[in-house]
Design a protein around this nucleic acid. Structure first.
Length: 492
RNA sequence: CGGGGUGUAGCGUAGUCCGGUCAUCGCGCCUGCUUUGGGAGCAGGAGGUCGCAAGUUCGAAUCUUGCCACCCCGACCA
């Protein structure tokens, strides 16, 4: 077991923090609620970005970039959106500092440099983007607009957690404009599908696709679709959202287009995003008490080769022996590193790479050179196998695939095991405490009931699953009739 | 915003109640030798505005006052 990671059973929350910090993913910074994403963490984020970016391009989207600052007057234009985010906005009021006459060597805000109009640091970019779209759109021929941006946003959260909720975070936000409601809804659902595909086939995190209830909806949306994942401790994590924005922003920013019939109408909109929070989902889905576990498809480094030797000549012998293997692995598209650092011993390196979640490790000693074998270990099961040198490339390629799918199936089995159908409020409350997880239960569809349940149990309706089957039932809280089960959980 | 906690070397810490060769120990770092198949051993060495500011005192990591920062729990949360 790791010397630096708190075991999950002892303190899950501390375990999570330890993984993030000790695996070198991120650190707390000098700024409250803001983190430094370190190279290892950023390397994973870059993989996430590259993969998603290609998926967006493949579905017809292009990238653009809009300003970090939004004039307050624009920000407040879409009332619900503004109201929803107002409580957590950072605001720029001045544009200059000057020397503080009372405290030599210190600076102060220059009171003469007050901005005419305050600038809101974007918590999300609908306002600035829709204000821009007004000038991009005149006719149905200008539609659809399928734009994505990779950016940072700021939300002044009261309480933050590394990756899961930080005051500043990195994300992508897609903002599309359409001529018809149907097309916009189709786009909303299509992007939800992209997210679900990415979550399951790259992050190896199984998700439930669904629609948010009215009270959980994005501020300014007509409908919010989401993917919900379940972490090892039985708490839910919203992993991505895709919003059908109706004509709300088009109306707020007066974005109209002339149709084929010459009539003017407001444009239909969507927006969708995933953030560095996905890192949190990745960490909490797969990692163990030894450290991080990275799905091979997103690992910046997939295979590490650790030499075991005596003296520099011994190291050289091993290096010569593995050189062809490294070349062959690279040819297969496997990222591989030969760790020839002489200042750490093999055992130390083993522990280190396990902590960092590298999917596979190959140990090669002088002993192996005589037998023509190597020892290959996989991170997900921690099992080791002796493999003939000439079979290594095939074995590694196959095993990386196997780890990827094993991680997904393991997480999926866990999610299914922790998903329960419940028909009484007593069982509901008991399960939340005794076996936390997803709970499928009947709900009468009212915001009042939803709110009461939340108050009394801290569980929220994560979503109304898209694949929910029609089923007559009675609301667990009010006893009123219900047509389908919805998904409850305590959430991050 | 409420409650709790922390701030001493790169990291983790002892010392604070009771002021006086107390700046302790471990990891890490540097040098050398021996080691290397699961976080090496020995020997030597370097490294400090004790969060910041003011005060009390012959003397402050330690006492007083004020301030700052971060973490954890809760409230809050597209």
């Amino acid at each position: 077991m790791s010397k630096v990671i708190t075991p999950r059973a002892q303190d899950y929350s501390k375990w999570y923090n330890d993984i993030v910090v000790e695996a070198g993913l991120a650190d707390h910074s000098a700024v409250r609620g803001c983190m430094v994403i370190k190279p290892h963490g950023y390397g994973i984020w870059e993989k996430i970005q590259q993969t998603l970016d290609k998926m967006f391009k493949d579905t017809g989207h292009v990238n653009a970039y809009f300003p970090l600052f939004i004039p307050k007057s624009l920000f407040e234009a879409e009332e619900k959106n503004a109201e929803g985010f107002a409580k957590e906005c950072a605001v720029v009021t001045h544009y200059r500092l000057k020397n503080d006459p009372e405290h030599p060597g210190k600076l102060m805000v220059d009171p003469n440099a007050k901005l005419e109009e305050e600038l809101v640091v974007r918590p999300t970019s609908e306002a600035i983007i829709w204000n821009t779209y007004r000038s991009w759109i005149n006719s149905y021929r200008d539609l659809p607009i399928l734009v994505n941006q990779w950016a940072n946003v700021v939300r002044w959260e009261m309480r933050t957690r590394l990756f899961l909720r930080t005051a500043e975070f990195l994300w992508q936000e897609g903002h599309t404009a359409h001529a018809t409601k149907e097309e916009a809804i189709e786009e909303t659902r299509k992007m939800l599908g992209v997210y679900a595909d990415f979550a399951e086939n790259w992050l190896a995190v199984p998700v439930i696709r669904g629609v948010k209830t009215e009270s959980e909806r994005f501020a300014g949306a007509d409908d919010t679709y989401c993917i919900e994942a379940l972490m090892q401790d039985g708490k839910a994590l919203q992993a991505g959202t895709s919003h059908f924005l109706g004509q709300n922003f088009a109306k707020a920013f007066d974005v109209k287009f002339a149709g084929q019939d010459g009539k003017l109408d407001y444009v239909w909109a969507t927006s969708w995003g995933v953030s560095t929070r996905l890192m949190g989902a990745l960490i909490m889905s797969h990692s163990d008490d030894n450290g991080l576990v990275i799905p091979p498809k997103l690992a910046p480094l997939q295979v590490v080769i650790v030499p075991i030797y005596k003296g520099m000549e011994g190291l050289q012998k091993v290096a010569d022996a593995v050189a062809p293997m490294i070349e062959a692995l690279k040819k297969q598209g496997v990222s591989v590193k030969f760790d020839d650092r002489d200042n750490q011993r093999p055992g130390w390196k083993f522990a280190e790479y396990e902590l960092k979640g590298i999917p596979m490790r190959i140990a090669v000693g002088e002993r192996d050179l005589t037998t023509g074998t190597v020892e290959v270990a996989r991170r997900d099961t921690l099992s080791k196998e002796v493999v003939k040198m000439e079979d290594v490339v095939d074995y590694v390629v196959k095993t990386l695939d196997d780890i990827q799918s094993n991680l997904f199936h393991r997480a999926k089995a866990r999610m299914e095991e922790k998903t329960m159908k419940v028909d009484t409020y007593e069982d509901f409350k008991r399960l939340l405490d005794e076996q936390p997880g997803f709970i499928l239960a009947h709900w009468d569809g009212t915001a009042e009931t939803e709110e009461k349940i939340k108050e009394e149990t801290k569980a929220t309706i994560r979503c109304i699953p898209l694949d929910a089957v029609e089923e007559e039932g009675k609301c667990i809280y009010s006893g009123k009739s219900s047509a389908r089960r919805v998904l409850f959980a305590r959430a991050y």
